[in-house]
Design a protein around this nucleic acid. Sequence first.
DNA 1: TTGACATATTCCGTAATGGGAATATAATCC
DNA 2: GGATTATATTCCCATTACGGAATATGTCAA
Lengths: 130, 130
Amino acid sequence: MARSSAASDVFSAIAEPRRRQIIDLLSRKRSLAVGAIVLSLGLPQPVVSKHLGVLREVGIVSVSKQGQRRVYELNHDQLRPVYDWIKTLERHWDHQLDRIRERAERRARAAAAPEQAKSPAQATHKKGTP
Amino acid sequence: MARSSAASDVFSAIAEPRRRQIIDLLSRKRSLAVGAIVLSLGLPQPVVSKHLGVLREVGIVSVSKQGQRRVYELNHDQLRPVYDWIKTLERHWDHQLDRIRERAERRARAAAAPEQAKSPAQATHKKGTP
DNA sequence: TTGACATATTCCGTAATGGGAATATAATCC
DNA sequence: GGATTATATTCCCATTACGGAATATGTCAA
């Protein structure tokens, strides 16, 4: 019963290495025809078409006919759930963002409570809260 | 063969919604015994144990015996491949990072050349989850 | 039309998935 | 020792996944 299937769930869709490869390809080149993907990945055409089918069903890619070929492109938005989910754990990876944000917050705190500021922050008028 | 199995591939491991739930739980509470997870998710204990088994095999979680219970905790590092992969597409989402970095740099420049300080210090920018 | 090309779909076989129920292991308490 | 609690493991089953081969659909060109 409705086990999260690759055909409907983004996370399952990206579980397949070759599907991730396809996504990688499409994120670099703006758009690609099936043939180009087949060439690039070196997989049998039916295999590629089937993977594209899965990605299509989930909404990760979209097609447009162009002559006798189908041109695929990435819908980045559909991958957002993955991004949002993993981003929750971002703080654990000592990411640049953290250092920047941390510094900003330290600075903000210092500006908000200047009496316990150990480091002599030059200037900084304090500032009322909006 | 060697289809990327959930038992060996991180992406496959996190494809399962309940496994993601477990990860979410463990990322909030530092460490949890199986019983607590069972309680929290409302799933049968064997099911939880099996999911934990998968996460364990991949290395996403690790166990330690504590009395008669096994306490699990998250190994964030193992999820890094997911983070790194999805982060490639970050630019498409006009991410907060850019704004924060920009602001920080502006601020840094202002601090380096204090005589022309005139920036509106918007210290506290609490950003709730959208 | 016929034929070449580009892509999708179907059928098949094998392997893996995840849940349920029952059972096994292990630690703790009496 | 035996009983109880906590967790893992095994067996079974229905479902799904993926690749391969063959075939179907669609499009252009002459």
